[in-house]
Each structure stands twice: as structure tokens, then as C-alpha cells.
Amino acid sequence: TGEEYIAVGDFTAQQVGDLTFKKGEILLVIEKKPDGWWIAKDAKGNEGLVPRTYLEPYS
């Protein structure tokens, strides 16, 4: 389980392990790392690192 967040901007993977997403996408945050990069999963089940500055809590 995780917390749902909504993307407030588009993000394109910079390196292997990053997750590309579009503004408005709902992501499930699995782990919040202290460096500001969180592990998240998208609706298709893809998992990767995302920058927390692009996310806001979804309710």
C-alpha cells in the first residue's frame, strides 16, 4: 500500500530507474526517501523514482 499523489507537472526520466509521468497523473508513493526522490508506481504498474517537488497529495 501507499499514498496517492497527483503530478503537478510533466517529468521525463533523466536516468535508468526514474519514472516518466504527465501532469494530472495519479501516482502511488511507496517509499519517501530523504533525498527528495520518492519511489512511486503509476496506473500501469510501472515503478520508479520521482521528484517529490512534482507531486501533491491527492484526496
Rank of each mutant, 00 (worst) to 15 (best):
R52T: 08
N46K: 09
I30L: 14
A43W: 12
N46T: 09
G17F: 05
T1A: 14
S59K: 15
K23Q: 08
E4H: 15
Y54F: 12
G48T: 01
W38I: 02
R52N: 15
E56K: 14
Y5K: 01
G36R: 03
D35I: 03
G9P: 00
P57E: 09
E31L: 11
R52H: 14
I30C: 06
V29K: 00
T1P: 12
P51C: 12
G48E: 00
W38V: 04
G2A: 12
D42K: 04
N46C: 09
E56G: 04
D35R: 03
T53L: 12
R52F: 12
I39Y: 12
K33A: 10
Q15F: 09
E31C: 08
L49K: 14
G24F: 05
D10L: 02
G9W: 15
G17K: 05
W38F: 06
K22M: 09
G36A: 05
W37R: 10
D42W: 00
G48Y: 02
D42L: 03
S59A: 13
F11T: 02
L49C: 09
V16C: 08
Y58H: 12
G2C: 09
Q14H: 10
I39L: 13
L27N: 00
E31P: 01
V16D: 14
Y54D: 04
F21S: 01
I6M: 10
Q15W: 08
A43E: 10
V29P: 01
E3Q: 12
F11E: 01
V50F: 01
E47V: 13
I6Q: 06
E4K: 15
K41H: 08
L55E: 01
I30D: 02
G48V: 02
A40Y: 01
T53K: 12
W38G: 01
Y5D: 00
L49E: 05
L28C: 08
K41T: 07
Q15R: 14
Y5H: 06
I6F: 06
F11Y: 14
I39M: 14
K32R: 08
D42Y: 01
I6E: 04
T1E: 14
A13N: 04
G17D: 06
E3I: 10
I30R: 05
L19W: 01
A13M: 06
F21H: 01
L49Y: 14
E25Y: 04
R52C: 13
T12N: 12
E3P: 07
A7Q: 01
T53S: 15
K44T: 10
E56L: 11
G45Q: 06
L28V: 12
G45T: 02
L28S: 07
A43G: 12
V16H: 14
G2L: 13
G2M: 13
Q15D: 12
E47I: 12
P57D: 06
S59Q: 14
G9D: 14
D10G: 06
K32C: 04
K22F: 09
K22A: 08
L19I: 06
Y54V: 14
T20R: 04
I26G: 02
D42F: 02
I30V: 10
A13S: 11
D42M: 02
Q14P: 06
K22I: 07
T20Q: 08
V29C: 03
V8S: 07
G17A: 06
K32L: 04
V16S: 14
Q14W: 08
P51A: 07
P34T: 15
E47N: 07
Y58F: 13
D35W: 04
T20S: 15
F21P: 01
V8T: 15
T53Q: 12
V16G: 10
L28M: 12
V50T: 04
A13C: 05
E47L: 15
G36I: 05
Y5E: 00
E4L: 15
G2D: 09
L49H: 11
T53C: 12
K33C: 09
L55H: 00
K23I: 07
G48N: 01
T20F: 04
G2Q: 10
L28H: 11
S59P: 09
A13K: 06
L19Y: 01
G17N: 06
E56D: 07
K23H: 07
W37L: 07
P51F: 11
G24P: 01
G17E: 05
V8N: 09
P34S: 13
N46D: 09
E47R: 09
V29H: 00
W37D: 05
R52D: 11
A43Y: 11
E25V: 05
I6D: 01
V16Y: 10
S59I: 12
G24L: 03
V8M: 15
W37Q: 07
G45I: 01
V29M: 02
Y5A: 02
P57N: 06
T53Y: 11
Y58S: 08
P34I: 11
P57S: 07
E47M: 11
T20P: 13
W37A: 06
V29N: 00
E31Y: 10
E4I: 13
I30P: 01
T12C: 08
G45M: 07
L19E: 00
V50L: 03
K44F: 13
K23G: 04
E56S: 10
P34H: 13
T12I: 12
K32E: 05
G24I: 01
P51W: 12
G24H: 06
D42P: 02
K32H: 05
V16M: 13
E4T: 14
R52Q: 14
K44M: 14
T53A: 15
Q15P: 03
K41D: 02
T1F: 11
D35P: 02
Q15H: 13
Y54T: 06
K32Y: 07
A7S: 09
G36Y: 05
G45R: 04
A40C: 08
D10M: 03
A13R: 07
G48H: 02
D10S: 09
E31G: 08
E4W: 15
V50M: 02
G45P: 00
T20A: 10
K33E: 04
A7R: 00
P51I: 05
T1W: 08
P34Y: 12
I26E: 02
I39H: 11
W37H: 07
G36P: 04
I26H: 07
G36S: 05
D18A: 14
V29A: 02
D35H: 07
K41A: 07
Y54W: 08
K41C: 08
E3M: 11
P34G: 13
T12Q: 13
G24T: 03
P34Q: 13
A40E: 00
P57F: 09
Y58D: 05
V50I: 05
R52S: 14
E31T: 11
